[in-house]
Structure formats: C-alpha cells, structure tokens
Design a protein around this nucleic acid. Structure first.
Lengths: 230, 230
DNA sequence: TCAGTACATTGGTTCAACCAATTAGGAGAT
DNA sequence: ATCTCCTAATTGGTTGAACCAATGTACTGA
C-alpha cells in the first residue's frame, strides 16, 4: 500500500493511538503494523529507520515506537555530510549564516520587548567578562546564547533548525577564529568583536530594523577584518 | 565498525572507486561492502536507504551504487512531512519564504550584472503577458522562474534547496492566492502583483541592495493586501 | 560485423529465527 | 492491603539464507 515515506506517514497517523499516561501518539508494533500495511517487516523497518533519523519518530527496544516532534539533530547531520562530501563549502555555510543572522535580527528588532533586550544584553555582559579573563570557551558559549536568543525571538522552527545546523558545522571554524581574534587584539577590555554586540541590542531596544541589520553587518565586518588572513 | 551515518560515509569514501567511463564514484556491491565493514546486509541497506533518501547516493538494481550530489528532493519531503505532522505551520513557511527572499534579493543586488537583470526582466515580461491572457499556470511558472533566478544569482546551495523546498510546500497556497488575486483586480493590464516585480529588477539594475529589499518587501505587501481575507 | 541469447552481477524483497531491552503481571513476604 | 522480586510477554534490534528482478557482459552464430 504505502511505498513512499509520505504515504507511510499518512498510514502512521491513522494507525497511531494516543497513550493515556504520556499523551504521546503510539504506533502499533512493527509486526502488527507491517501486517496491516501489507509490508514485510524488513521493508517497514527500512522506512522507519529513515523517519527516526529525520526525528519524526522515536523507537526504543522493548518500549515501542512513538510519533515525535523533530529537533535539529538531523539537519546538523545533513550539513556535516554535505560538507564532508564536498557538496557545500565552508564559505557557503559562512555566507548562509551571515545572511540568515542579518535577516533574523531585522525581524527580531520589530518584535523585541525591553525584557528580551535585557536578556540579550546579559549574554553580552557574560561574553565580555569571560573574554576579559581569557576564558575563550565561556565567551563562545555566551556568544552562542546571544545569537540563539535572536533566533528565538523570531521563533520560526525553520530558522531555528538552520541556525543550529549552521552553528554545528561551523563550530570549529568559529572557535578557531575567536582564538585568533583573542590573540590579535592587545587590550582585552575593548575587545571589539564583543563590544559590537551592544550595537545590536541598542538597535533592538529602539525597535529599529534598519539599524539592527546595519549593526549585525558591522558585527560580521569586524569579525572578518580581525580574523581573516591578510 | 560504522554504527552511525557519519562513520558509514567515511567508510564509503575510502571504499569508493572512480569509474572510468562516467567518472562517478562507485561503491562496492552491498554484499562485498557489508563484509568489509563487518555489517550484515540488512543493516547496511537500512543505512543506505537513508543516504539515498538524503540524495547522497544513487542505487539502481543491476547497475550498482554511486555517490551522488544531492538535489532538493529530500528537503521538499522533509517540509511536507513537517507540515503534515503539524510541526511547522503554513504561516511559518510563508514567513520563512518572505524573509529568505528579502535576504537573497539584497545579496543579488550586490552582484547582479546587466545581462542577468535582463534575463530576470524577461521572466516578468512573460508573467505579465500570461496574466493578461488569464493564463494562471503560465504566469505562475514565469513567477517561479523569476524568483528562482534571484536565488541562482546568489548561488548558495543552502538557499537554493530552501527555496525549492518552500516553493514545493507552498505551491498550493501560492497558486490559490494568485487565482484569488486574478479574480480581485478588474483590469488585467495593470495587474499590480506583476508590475511590482519590475521595481525589483530596477533596483538590481542600479545594484542598490536597500532598494532591492524595499521592492521585495513591497512585493509581499501588495501580495498580502490583495489576497488576504479582510 | 552485428544480433541475439545465455550468464553473471547487483540491488530489491521476503521470511524465519533469535537477541536484548523494557514492561506487565503474578507470587510471595511484610 | 502493599511492597518486592521474579517471571513471562511484548517490542524493537539483528542476522542469514534464499529468491526475485533489472542491468550489464560475454559468447555464439548468422
């Protein structure tokens, strides 16, 4: 009956039954499901394996199979494979990240509340403080929190997943750039790649999309100017 | 040895051999590959099925398995499933599409050549002509060609795939909106949702990113104003 | 030289059996 | 009655062999 994933999912939806205790949608056992769909267990499992990788179902030995809300794990894997196999370059990932951040910060500026801006500022404070102590890992974490916070303001799963995926695939290059930047500047107190973040929150506080975009662009300009090879 | 997809891909890369005639990278036969990876054929096939769905390999009965450059087919499937399962809403897809188009047109304006702008203008010409004849399908095709052309200017596979996926999942809603728009306007000659496209190419011709973004935003504003329920 | 046929290769599919983790149920002790 | 522990049933995880079907190759003969 169901040869493709889309068709299979339609069947799964109709076969799923809500579980009282957890409220999650539980699928019939593989053997049962295969019989009702007229699919051999092997073929069914091949498709379920894919659905599990995509994050749409969760399977646990002995417990059962449940419909699930996907997380960004799969897109991270996809990006890593695409990079490894040479289908998407690091430069293209970087370009996508910058364009996404700029697009998102513009939208975030439209809808940012003072409380949300304050939270973002606290992330920058933590970053500046960590940088001044030379704690690169702490600074990177705070930096991630700040940028993630921007995406959470917009709250679109497509962008959130992309952000997570891009962050994962660019993790190494970002970390190395930041270490390089830390080595370049002399006085850590005015570490410019940290300070430029305040320009973004200032624009958000004024709910000024154009200024936010400009500030984010400047963030990347500074970043590149400091870390790129001459 | 290789339990996860990432590990499997590493093995595949080392096991792959370049084929003389086509130049494509050919993988060993499943039975051979399974033996050398210490994987049963069933487990290997389960993973290969996923890699095939993602577009990284191509399998044909009797011919063999080859490494392949992925297309957007998989992201289209992912979006359709996410929509069907209620994890991403149509509104979120629409928002993502608008934000992406605006971000891309800005970048396209930076790098557009006169020849490329002329090509884009020809798509709009075709769209206006088709609309004037009431040929909705032709107009939609020309519209798609125009927007796809913008993404091809930027030429980032991440955005191209996203564009393809969003287009696919929004195909029905877009088509219906356009039909509604066609029913709303009286004189087809100044069909405003077509005409507004020229504002975009004008900005591209001047290599003016800000104007391009404003024109694209206006494009969506007009679109929504005409087709949204009162 | 060409056409056709037989054979080998390769992916596609099924089935039965067994392993391992989890859960449900019942027996026994408190 | 309630709790604990052991057993059995349920369920996903894995294997191997066998067979089907599509493709490519090599051989045979006109």
């Amino acid at each position: 009956m169901a040869k493709d994933l889309a068709g299979l999912v339609e069947s799964l939806i109709s076969e799923a039954s809500s579980e009282e205790s957890t409220g999650r949608l539980r699928l019939p056992a593989e053997r049962t499901l295969g019989a009702s769909l007229d699919l051999s267990r092997g073929m069914l499992r091949e498709q379920l394996a894919t659905l599990e990788l995509l994050g749409f179902i969760d399977r646990t030995q002995g417990r059962g199979t449940y419909l699930e809300a996907p997380d960004s794990g799969f897109i991270q894997l996809y990006f890593r494979l695409a990079l490894r196999l040479g289908h998407i370059s690091a430069a293209q990932f970087t370009q996508a990240r910058e364009m996404l951040e700029i697009a998102v910060v513009e939208q975030a500026a439209v809808m940012a509340t003072p409380a949300e801006v304050a939270t973002l500022r606290s992330h920058i404070d933590r970053m500046v403080e960590a940088t001044s102590r030379g704690d690169v890992d702490k600074a990177i974490t705070a930096d991630f929190d700040f940028h993630r916070g921007l995406f959470e303001l917009v709250d679109n799963p497509i962008f959130n997943f992309l952000q997570d995926g891009l962050r994962d695939v660019l993790r190494d290059v970002v970390a190395e750039r930041r270490r390089k930047a830390l080595a370049v500047v002399e006085t850590t107190s005015d570490f410019i790649t940290d300070q430029v973040h305040y320009g973004i929150t200032d624009a958000l506080a004024k709910n000024d999309p154009d200024a936010a975009r400009a500030a984010m662009r400047r963030h990347f300009d500074v970043w590149r100017a400091i870390t790129d090879e001459p």
